[in-house]
Design a protein around this nucleic acid. Structure first.
Lengths: 210, 210
DNA sequence: AGCCTTTCGCTACGGGTCGTAGCGTAACTC
DNA sequence: GAGTTACGCTACGACCCGTAGCGAAAGGCT
């Protein structure tokens, strides 16, 4: 980020209103809660934010990118405190992620923008940078801690480690999303306990693959 | 299905054209491939199918339900041949499911209708009945076969069995979808081998929870 | 201060899609 | 043949999109 000669407001002229930025993103989340993704319109968001519609289009090219930015900040809440065991860490982060998916803003927006991203590479990259990578970092630190505790063996083949990290990430995030949005059933302690038991029990078998 | 007094074409009057049904669903899939979910319009589908727009609205209330029906038939391809071991069965069905998700019709449509279903209970039920349950059945038969082979212990607590079936379903389907659509990386033999190893290795730990 | 540049709110617009209504015609049942 | 329903077609109001043009506001630069 900020890699190309820092064109921050291009140095001259009237600067972008940061209050407008915040108001627009806040209005977008409010509109997502009330209307949902499909009925959200740019004009409605502009009205809520007390801003002209043209001001939205100066900042975001379309509804998809606006919604990604509006929802991305919610994923800053995700943290991974050290609870002393791999299983406890997993259960904590899964419950956190599930709580995030229960919020109406994310519930209606996340799948929608992912669906759009299948035909829009820039959008896919934006989602990856502002949402997906932020979650994936949790997997890396969780594994590192488990290795420091001796719950997992130290790294041997770095490629295998990366592949396993990718797998665990897709399994955890995918399972929670599928449970919450497709099966539409609660992510409660019972379910989380089973999922974490599956992961902790299965990680040894995966590591044995080398 | 057909539970309420079988109103099949209500007995009198001109019957619905089954050719039109097929043409519309086929046209919907073609439009999904060419245009994707967001740019697909009812008028365009009607034109492709050689049918008036009003004919579409007599059958489907909106774009969501039409697309669900158009995509649902693709999930009939999913089968679970007995390959002799739980791990082989898992790997086969995962590769099948991944191939289905690689098709542009399903890739663009599946996440979109799931996103819509978060605010549309009838749509959610339609997806469950015509797509989700069809996949879930594979998990049940896979488990049953593994038990018959002795790879998994016989049932004790039926509630625990149901909970584990639900978990396995969400983990497999969720992981594949997340890998294919969110991470946007290939579901290849390497990845599938790791996933199935994780599942087979972890199932014992889950069963121990009772 | 004055000039330049950019953003702002506002209005208006053409283009497109939605979902429905109304019509005359076609197809099937009794 | 009479009754009923589906069909194709056209037209329509309503809505949303994304942009253009305007004068005014808010900064930087000399």
């Amino acid at each position: 980020m900020c890699s190309r000669t820092k064109p921050r407001s291009s140095r001259t002229g009237r600067p972008r209103s940061t209050e407008a930025d915040a108001a627009i993103l806040e209005a977008t989340r409010a509109a997502l809660v009330e209307l949902g993704w499909s009925k959200l319109t740019m004009g409605d968001v502009a009205g809520r934010a007390g801003v002209a519609k043209t001001t939205l289009y100066r900042r975001w090219a379309n509804k998809n990118e606006l919604v990604v930015d509006a929802v991305a900040v919610l994923f800053d809440e995700l943290e991974l405190p050290d609870l002393g065991s791999l299983q406890a860490d997993i259960e904590h982060v899964v419950l956190q992620f599930a709580a995030l998916l229960e919020r109406p803003e994310t519930k209606t927006a996340l799948m929608a923008v992912v669906a759009e991203s299948t035909r829009d590479a820039p959008l896919r990259e934006r989602i990856r940078a502002s949402i997906v990578d932020r979650q994936k970092r949790l997997v890396l630190t969780g594994r590192r801690r488990a290795q420091e505790r001796g719950e997992l063996p130290a790294d041997r083949d770095p490629e295998a480690v990366d592949a396993t990290d990718d797998l665990i990430f897709d399994v955890i995030a995918g399972a929670v999303v599928h449970r919450a949005l497709v099966s539409a059933e609660p992510v409660d302690e019972n379910w989380v306990a089973r999922l974490s038991a599956l992961l902790v029990g299965g990680l040894g078998a995966v590591a044995a693959l080398g």
